Measured scan of single mutants.
Amino acid sequence: VTLFVALYDYEAITEDDLSFHKGEKFQILNSSEGDWWEARSLTTGETGYIPSNYVAPVD
């Protein structure tokens, strides 16, 4: 499982989006939707859509 880490803070715009803070880690559930990925936060356990350009793979 490839994990991703937030590079910036993000505040949800719609109820389907997931708010997060810089440094938060995610498991990507679906990355086939283009620039918005469905993800689960490993910090909160919540799922929602995140902007793919706000995250990077964890080394």
Rank of each mutant, 00 (worst) to 15 (best):
V1L: 13
K25Y: 15
T2G: 12
E33F: 13
V5R: 04
L18I: 11
I13W: 09
P51F: 06
S31M: 14
Y8I: 06
R40A: 05
R40D: 01
W37L: 08
W37V: 06
D16K: 15
S52L: 05
F4N: 02
N53Q: 11
L42F: 06
L3M: 10
L29Q: 05
H21W: 07
Q27I: 15
E24I: 02
W37N: 01
E24Q: 06
V1Q: 14
A39Q: 00
G48M: 03
E24N: 05
A6W: 01
V1I: 13
S31C: 12
F4E: 01
T43E: 14
P51A: 04
L42N: 04
Y10R: 05
K25C: 10
G45F: 08
G34F: 09
Q27K: 08
W37D: 01
E46Y: 09
Y8N: 07
D9W: 04
A39G: 05
I28V: 10
I50W: 01
G45K: 05
E38Y: 15
E11I: 13
S19M: 03
Y49F: 12
E11D: 11
H21N: 11
L42I: 10
E38K: 10
E24W: 07
S31R: 11
Q27W: 13
S19W: 03
I50Y: 00
Y54F: 11
V55Y: 01
G48P: 00
E38H: 14
S52I: 07
L42E: 08
D16P: 06
L7A: 03
K22C: 08
E46G: 08
V5A: 05
D17W: 15
E46N: 12
T47L: 08
I28E: 01
D16T: 15
D16V: 14
G34E: 12
D59N: 12
V55G: 01
E15A: 14
F20S: 01
I50P: 00
T2Q: 14
Y54P: 01
E33I: 11
L3K: 05
N30F: 07
D16S: 14
S32M: 13
V1P: 13
L3S: 06
R40E: 06
N53V: 09
I28K: 04
L18C: 02
P57Q: 08
A56H: 08
E33T: 14
N53T: 11
G48K: 02
E33G: 14
I50T: 00
T2W: 09
S41K: 14
Y8V: 07
F26N: 00
A56V: 14
T2N: 12
A12L: 01
Y54E: 01
G45Q: 07
A12E: 02
A12T: 04
N53P: 06
A56G: 09
S32T: 11
W36H: 08
R40W: 06
N30V: 07
V5K: 05
P57H: 06
E46T: 08
L42C: 11
D16F: 15
K22I: 09
E46D: 10
N53Y: 10
L18V: 05
N53I: 10
D9I: 02
Y8E: 08
L42V: 09
T14D: 11
D35Y: 15
Y8F: 12
D59P: 12
T47P: 02
L18Q: 03
E15C: 12
V55I: 10
Q27F: 13
L29F: 07
Y10G: 02
S41L: 07
T14H: 15
G48R: 02
A56L: 08
E15G: 13
A6Y: 01
L29W: 05
D17Q: 15
L29A: 05
A12N: 05
T47H: 08
E11H: 11
H21G: 07
A6K: 00
D35Q: 11
A12F: 02
N30L: 06
V1E: 15
Q27E: 15
T14S: 15
Y49N: 08
K22Q: 09
W37K: 03
N53K: 14
L29N: 06
V5D: 02
G45A: 05
D16A: 14
T44M: 02
T44I: 01
G34D: 13
Y10F: 11
H21R: 14
V1D: 14
V1W: 10
V1N: 14
I50M: 02
I28H: 01
F20G: 00
T2V: 13
Y54M: 11
K25N: 07
L3E: 10
S31Y: 13
Q27H: 11
Y10V: 02
P51T: 02
N30R: 07
D35V: 11
T44Q: 03
S32N: 11
F26I: 05
P57V: 07
L42M: 12
G34A: 14
L7C: 08
F26A: 00
E24D: 15
T2P: 14
A12V: 02
Y10N: 03
A39L: 01
G34N: 12
F4A: 10
I50Q: 00
T2Y: 10
F4W: 15
E11N: 11
F4V: 13
D17K: 15
N53H: 12
F20C: 03
Y10E: 00
E38I: 15
F20L: 05
E33A: 14
V5Y: 13
I28N: 01
Q27N: 08
Q27P: 00
G45Y: 07
A56K: 10
Y49T: 07
P51G: 04
Y49Q: 09
D16Y: 15
T44G: 03
E24L: 01
D59A: 12
N53E: 09
D59E: 11
F20I: 05
W37T: 03
D59L: 11
D9V: 02
Y10P: 00
Y54D: 02
G48T: 01
L18H: 02
L3R: 05
T14M: 12
I13C: 12
D59I: 12
G34L: 13
L3T: 10
V58P: 04
I13E: 13
G23M: 03
Q27Y: 14
V1K: 12
P57L: 08
N53A: 14
Y10K: 03
D35R: 09
T47V: 13
G34K: 15
E33K: 15
S19I: 02
D35A: 11
Y8M: 10
Y49K: 14
Y10Q: 02
S19V: 02
A12C: 05
F20M: 09
L18E: 00
E15F: 10
G48H: 03
N53W: 13
E11S: 10
E11A: 10
L3I: 15
